[in-house]
């Protein structure tokens, strides 16, 4: 069953000449993990914001086509209403903290308060969410006292707590250190296993190759949609859109050149491990 459906969707910000996104057609199944790659300015952020309705409701511009998410038409639904269908996390963790919550628990409660969720239910969901993000002991701390990675986890949790079926992450790790990045990816992997549909925009190819079901390459339009193995090893295609392939692919290219390996180019560390182990034997 398709949970997300873009039909001929195009978007132009008012004041800009060209289409930021042109003729987007994609269907995403429930429970899929979609990775979105593309250079800066390729419209990935616009694509992500369109799912919560920031485009067209928040930004002025011209929209064509149609977006149906979780059974609702984005154009006809308010952002607040969409927020219980779609959760959107942004790049900067600190700017997503509302500032109204003096503790992490209150930060998480913010969305639920707005939806009018009763106290007991709120309390239960907060406890569960803190457990999920591994911050049970930090519930009474101020969110501003956390590390970047932890803040980002709180930010993701704060939209997730509203029980959306789709979680959209726009470059959630670009401002984090390697440890923070790993924490966030681990959490996203957990969520994906629970059956939440995940759309993640990131150029962290190493992680995407491990987790994503499909990769979408953006350049103001959808250039290609395919499995991680197909897209992330297409070096020419990546180069054409100002992206680079991963170190693992590079190793497999060199092995091939040396005549040690004959199969397809690799993108996954586990696959590479098998090949290298075979060579050692």
């Amino acid at each position: 069953m398709d949970i997300i459906n873009f039909k001929n969707f195009s978007w132009k910000y008012s004041g800009y000449r060209g289409w930021t996104l042109h003729n987007i057609n994609i269907s995403i199944k429930k429970g899929e993990f979609i990775g979105i790659i593309g250079k800066i300015g390729s419209g990935r952020t616009t694509f992500c914001s369109s799912m919560l309705g920031l485009v067209p409701h928040f930004y002025p511009g011209i929209m064509e086509g149609e977006i149906i998410i979780d059974g609702v038409n984005v154009k006809e639904t308010s952002i607040s209403e969409l927020s219980s269908h779609v959760g959107l996390a942004f790049q900067s963790p600190a700017n997503q903290l509302t500032g109204a919550g003096t503790t992490i628990e209150e930060e998480l409660a913010f969305g639920l308060q707005n939806l009018g969720v009763p106290y007991e239910e709120m309390n239960k969901r907060i406890k569960d969410m803190l457990k999920l993000i591994g911050l049970e002991k930090f519930g009474k701390r101020s969110p501003f006292e956390l590390s970047g990675g932890q803040q980002q986890k709180v930010a993701i949790a704060s939209v997730l707590i509203m029980n959306p079926n789709v979680l959209v992450l726009d470059e959630p790790t670009s401002q984090l250190d390697p440890l923070g990045t790993e924490q966030v990816f681990d959490m996203v992997k957990k969520l994906s296993k629970k059956g939440i549909t995940i759309i993640m925009s990131t150029n962290n190819i190493n992680y995407l190759s491990k987790f994503a079901d499909r990769i979408v390459l953006f350049d103001n339009a959808i250039i290609k949609v395919d499995t991680p193995n197909k897209i992330l090893t297409d070096i020419e295609l990546l180069k054409k859109h100002s992206l680079t392939h991963s170190d693992i692919t590079e190793v497999s290219i060199r092995l091939k050149k040396m005549g040690l390996y004959k199969g397809e180019l690799l993108v996954n560390l586990e696959d590479l491990k098998k090949v290298v182990q075979g060579l050692i034997k």
């Binding site: 919560l52 927020s83 942004f90 509302t98 308060q113 707005n114 309390n123």
Partner: peptide
């Protein structure tokens, strides 16, 4: 970010 958390949703609000 506030809108993403239903800030302007109408209806009764609760408090934590």
């Amino acid at each position: 970010a506030l809108e993403a958390r239903a800030f302007s949703s109408k209806g009764k609000k609760t408090s934590y």
